[in-house]
């Protein structure tokens, strides 16, 4: 499973409703958390959980206590999000 592609696909789906210009051409520097409102972040979490369930055949809880914390959110960029998801999957495997 390519996590980066999972994230990009999820963001594409979220943006179908959100229609945010900054999400149309995502780079590693795109400040996801600043671009997404709370509903958008929640939508992204739901999309990611759904994709991960399809890929892995089990539920991975994507939200944590810092999900929507400006300073510590793993949703800052696709790079931080990818690292976070890898850690979540690893954690849930044990």
């Amino acid at each position: 499973m390519n996590l980066r592609n999972v994230i990009l696909d999820a963001l594409k789906t979220v943006n179908e409703d959100l229609q945010c210009e900054a999400l149309e051409h995502i780079s590693e520097q795109t400040p996801l958390f600043e671009v997404l409102d709370s509903l958008g972040t929640l939508d992204l979490i739901l999309e990611l959980e759904s994709s991960l369930r399809n890929e892995l055949g089990r539920y991975i809880a994507v939200a944590n206590e810092q999900s929507m914390n400006r300073k510590e959110t793993p949703f800052k960029t696709i790079v931080t999000l990818e690292a976070y998801l890898a850690e979540r999957i690893e954690h849930e495997s044990h």
């Binding site: 409102d37 709370s38 509903l39 929640l42 206590e65 810092q66 999900s67 929507m68 914390n69």
Partner: peptide, 12 residues
């Protein structure tokens, strides 16, 4: 309501 902060608060 700051939805993001309230979300974190509830989960935490």
């Amino acid at each position: 309501m700051d939805g993001k902060e309230v979300f974190n608060f509830a989960i935490k």
